[in-house]
Design a protein around this nucleic acid. Sequence first.
DNA 1: GAGGTTAGTGTCAGTCGCTGACAATTGACA
DNA 2: TGTCAATTGTCAGCGACTGACACTAACCTC
Lengths: 223, 223
Amino acid sequence: MTAEQPTAPRTPAPVGLRERKKRRTRDALLRAALELFTTRGYEGTTVDEIVDAVDVSQRTFFRYFASKEEVAFAVQQMVERHFVAALAERPAHEAPLEAMRNAVLTAWDTIGEAIMEVVPIELYLRTFQMIESTPALLAVHLRRSIEMEENIARLIADREGLDVDADPRPRVAVAAFSGVMRTTGHLWGRGEDASLEAIRALTEAYLDHLGPALAADWRGAPA
Amino acid sequence: MTAEQPTAPRTPAPVGLRERKKRRTRDALLRAALELFTTRGYEGTTVDEIVDAVDVSQRTFFRYFASKEEVAFAVQQMVERHFVAALAERPAHEAPLEAMRNAVLTAWDTIGEAIMEVVPIELYLRTFQMIESTPALLAVHLRRSIEMEENIARLIADREGLDVDADPRPRVAVAAFSGVMRTTGHLWGRGEDASLEAIRALTEAYLDHLGPALAADWRGAPA
DNA sequence: GAGGTTAGTGTCAGTCGCTGACAATTGACA
DNA sequence: TGTCAATTGTCAGCGACTGACACTAACCTC
């Protein structure tokens, strides 16, 4: 993990012709897949249909994406990295919950440009809704979430100078926080307003209900 | 959903010969599957191997279980029903978090017998660990968890006389609670002590850290 | 710029999960 | 006992995915 500017789009500019071709093929597959997924549905789309749209072989698809599922989460992965970067940038004086809260809200404010380099922002919004409403993808989405939860817990523990395995508080705080995040994401996916502003507002409102208990200063207080 | 004694094992005793045969086939498939899963691994076990062990056709397997995944969660489903039943039995004066906490702890105390009617308790423990350590199953496990979360949120909202869609508190409380539960389950699956007592103790300890904020009395206080 | 190296791609054959259709069997019940 | 309905097996086929191998095109060196 080479830490660069945290909110910078991860597009290191491809150099050789080979690299550029690869990038182009991958992007084409990604866009074609999301477009098909969001119109015909995930289950209703076969890998053969995706590769036909881009005119490559099925084997090539599976060299770029380990599975049909993986391509559905390519953009989501960018967003997650974006949030983690924002969290790492939070000043040390902020309490854990406060830092996480500010990181999400800032991330939602700045993620737009980074996404647009790969796919239209509106396609990402539709993709997110599709993930939330497709059981098989929702399952994977949740597993990815808790994998990130573990990373964030370690990050928070480091901030507070705690041992993540000895002190339950980092994991508990992150678990509670993520539970709320997941709930807002779910409600957003089911709701009417599919804008970035909507998810941001929903997040802010729901986090307000988590109470000051977890936001209290931990340092000096024993477990 | 016919509500009987909440903590009673769900074994309505099969009547006809046909029913008993069905039950036997299903149980045999279940046991064979879990035994193979926990020894050779989930991915390392084919459906053909399961049906060979029981000597039925593959088609029969898929008539009892919608998928290879489903059979892995058959026992888990019992445990979940057990918890929901225990929660429904909690006296009305208990605050939401208090009720959920007591329901889990009671459930862990009484689930043993119900499980043993179907599979050895030790096989269930191994199965749980396998689920937690198999990515594909972990994903499904998490999705099942949030489906239950939604049910519990409605149950809690009913207890408190709230509208689950208007007031965020039921969903927030349940989300935070479930987040902690998930974390303890995960840690249990990765830990050394695979006993029921261990998961119960872990649950109790971790829930203590969720703080009194969510446990406060809601009635009368506006959102 | 020819020639060898290497990375990316296509083709093919095969495995595994899963499903629909149809026929054969077997318990239930008059 | 004979009919009816439920359970099961067989078979054919789809879709996701993989390993092996041959082919092509970018790259790199002399």
